[in-house]
Design a protein around this nucleic acid. Structure first.
Length: 582
RNA sequence: CGGGGUGUGGCUCAGCUUGGCUAGAGCGCUUGGUUCGGGACCAAGAGGUCGCAGGUUCAAAUCCUGUCACCCCGACCA
């Protein structure tokens, strides 16, 4: 492509609407333009990158045995009513009615395609002999984001690769899941992303049933923990801590139990300020309803409850914070003054609770707290559990060092769905014994444009973007320093043609602009390799080859220039390929 | 949906508090010339109903009311 024949609107100044690096750089480099909040146009350069990512995704999905198809973005609303997801999605589901003759048709723009594909499979597949099957598509999804943000990272319309597997057994599901997991690792590696596969909430099937692929980035919306040894990574909701149950015994330093007045001080923060103690010296007492029965959950004052852990520890189906009435019934006080001493319901406690000596807690009386509260003497615990969100510094559950918390951008998610949709939409098969079963499903998503955005978010320097060869908008830019010089230009044209013939994705900067201007643009966009022709070099019979990240160009003889470029590309491609797991 | 902020040529912004004359600057764009290895210089130009609507006033970018859009923080995110 010739620069003069395409559209690459670069900007020197930073648009005032863009705050995070990927947004600023993608705008400045001419990759995207905003149409409205949450909807972006991919300009020719941005689209080229997207297409390259798509090609990698297709190769790897096909390699893993998935088959591509293409489903509509327009869905009939009743599919979502049948699975209960019209209500579950709520406002996120973009839906509307259109007039067709004398009737109205209620449609939705697909936020994902579980319903559509399950309905399809329900109609066309019914024998165990046809399973397992894994289908995928690359398609635009629509979700009405309450608050679109972070440029192209969180939009109401986005490109997603979504795959769905249908299996006759859990073993079959496990096998497909592993194949997809592995394909994802290859995809993200090939795209040059630094990523983390983290354990995520497992949902209906339980166990090791869900992983998110996260790109660590300061502006990532999700928090994930990872162990310093690298053996453990999980999202924050899921993350276990490697803490051991402490001994439960009254400290020899226990002081007298005292009741103190704390009028209107109901929060940890208010009480700690009033009594001049740190939150970690306090015990937080949360009253939950576990399957409708009240339970007091004790945490150290500075910790945050993890409801999934609480639910699991109690073996409960549902867990929710109790209402005011329940709280009065078990504590005898309004919300904000609950404590373990004398409370009228069962108590469970986090591992860190017994270690708080002379704790400050609610007194189970209005406007009153207790100080000098100690386990064993003032309240009893049989055991402790892991009930809170992990924090930095917790021991790794794998025993390899401690946990750290990092932000991440979710670029992929693999998930064992189970039979939720196959049951709701009658996707059943007949086994060898003529028994009818719902198919066991898995779903596997990749945010295609998030791959490009997270690369931009994490790979740049003060001059602009830095791409891997694999998904750079162009691999090579050829820059003639002076387009008015026939000798320079004819050489540039020759290189351009020869590189194209060699299969290189090359852009010829044929603009009549000053060299510095072209160099700045080239660095901003971040073409991996630059070939410069003209000036003093040309008089000496030399051209210049420079990697985007190199500080100085290499001079090569004119006649060897194309070969030099090809050699470097070959070497770099091999280097990138080496980072991809087999 | 709660809180905060911003809307002035394509981009970045000044002007608004304290109403007043023809609405400015830099960058970009057009034309001509000089230049030509890291976002050149000179000259001449084009381009703005100051987000929109209403109101106050002799007079509104500026004050008031409403409205729309965008950005940020939070809530939400199969």
């Amino acid at each position: 492509m010739r620069w003069s024949k395409t559209l690459i609107p670069t900007m020197r100044e930073v648009p005032s609407d863009a705050e995070i690096p990927s947004h600023q750089l993608m705008l400045r480099a001419g990759l995207v333009r905003q149409l409205m909040a949450g909807a972006y146009t991919y300009l020719p350069l941005g689209w080229k990158s997207i297409r390259k990512v798509e090609a990698i995704v297709r190769e790897e999905m096909n390699r893993a045995g998935a088959v591509e198809l293409f489903m509509p973005a327009l869905h009939p609303i009743d599919l979502y009513e049948r699975t209960g997801r019209k209500a579950a999605f709520g406002n996120v589901l973009i839906n509307f009615q259109v007039q067709r003759g004398d009737r109205k048709v209620h449609l939705a723009l697909g936020p994902t395609h579980e319903e559509v594909i399950t309905d399809l499979i329900a109609r066309h597949l019914n024998s165990w002999r046809q399973l397992p099957l894994c289908l995928y598509q690359i398609q635009t999804k629509f979700r009405n984001e309450e608050r679109p943000r972070f440029g192209v990272l969180r939009t109401s319309e986005f490109i997603m690769k979504d795959a769905y597997s249908f299996s006759a057994s859990l073993e079959q599901l496990d096998a497909v899941y592993q194949q997809m997991y592995h394909a994802y690792c290859r995809i993200f590696s090939r795209c040059g992303l630094n990523y983390l596969a983290v354990e995520a909430e497992s949902g209906p099937i339980g166990g090791d049933a869900s992983h998110e692929f996260m790109v660590p980035a300061n502006n990532g919306e999700d928090s994930v923990v990872r162990s310093t040894g690298g053996a453990y990574a999980a999202n924050l909701e899921r993350a276990e801590t490697g803490r051991q149950p402490p001994p439960i015994q009254t400290s020899p330093h226990a002081t007298a139990l005292q009741q103190v007045a704390t009028p209107n001080a109901t929060s940890i923060e208010q009480v700690s300020r009033l009594l001049k103690c740190s939150p970690s010296q306090m015990l937080k007492t949360l009253i939950y309803l576990a399957d409708s029965k009240p339970v007091a959950v004790l945490l150290r004052g500075d910790h945050v409850a993890n409801e999934a852990k609480i639910r699991r520890a109690l073996g409960a189906g549902t867990v929710e914070l109790a209402d005011e009435k329940t709280i009065r019934a078990v504590t005898g006080a309004p919300t904000g003054f609950a404590g373990p001493v004398g409370i009228q319901c069962p108590i469970i406690a986090d591992h860190d609770v017994p270690a708080v000596v002379n704790a400050v807690t609610g007194a189970n009386a209005a406007d009153m707290h207790l100080t000098g509260v100690n386990v064993g003497r003032d309240y009893a615990l049989a055991t402790t559990s892991d009930l809170r969100m992990a924090v930095a510094g917790d021991p790794s559950p794998r025993g390899d060092g401690t946990l750290e918390v990092v932000h991440g951008i979710e670029v992929g998610h693999v998930f064992k769905l189970g039979t939720k949709y196959s049951v709701a939409l009658n996707a059943e098969f007949l086994d060898e014994k003529e028994q009818r079963h719902p198919m066991i499903m898995g779903c596997y998503g990749i945010g295609v444009n998030r791959i490009v955005a997270s690369l931009a978010e994490t790979s740049f320097d003060e001059n602009g973007l830095i791409w891997p060869l694999s998904i750079a908008p162009y691999e090579v830019v050829v820059i003639p320093l002076n387009v008015a010089d026939p000798q320079v230009m004819s050489l540039a044209e020759r290189f351009y043609a020869e590189l194209q013939q060699a299969g290189v994705d090359v852009l010829l900067d044929d603009r009549d602009a000053r060299p510095g201007f072209k160099f700045k643009d080239s660095d901003l966009i971040g073409f991996p390799l630059r070939l410069v022709i003209g000036g003093k070099g040309l008089q000496e019979g030399l051209a210049e080859v420079k990697w985007r990240t190199a500080s100085e160009p290499e001079k090569v003889p004119i006649d060897a220039a194309v070969a030099a470029v090809l050699d470097r590309l070959t070497a770099r491609r091999a280097e990138e390929a080496r980072r991809v797991p087999e």
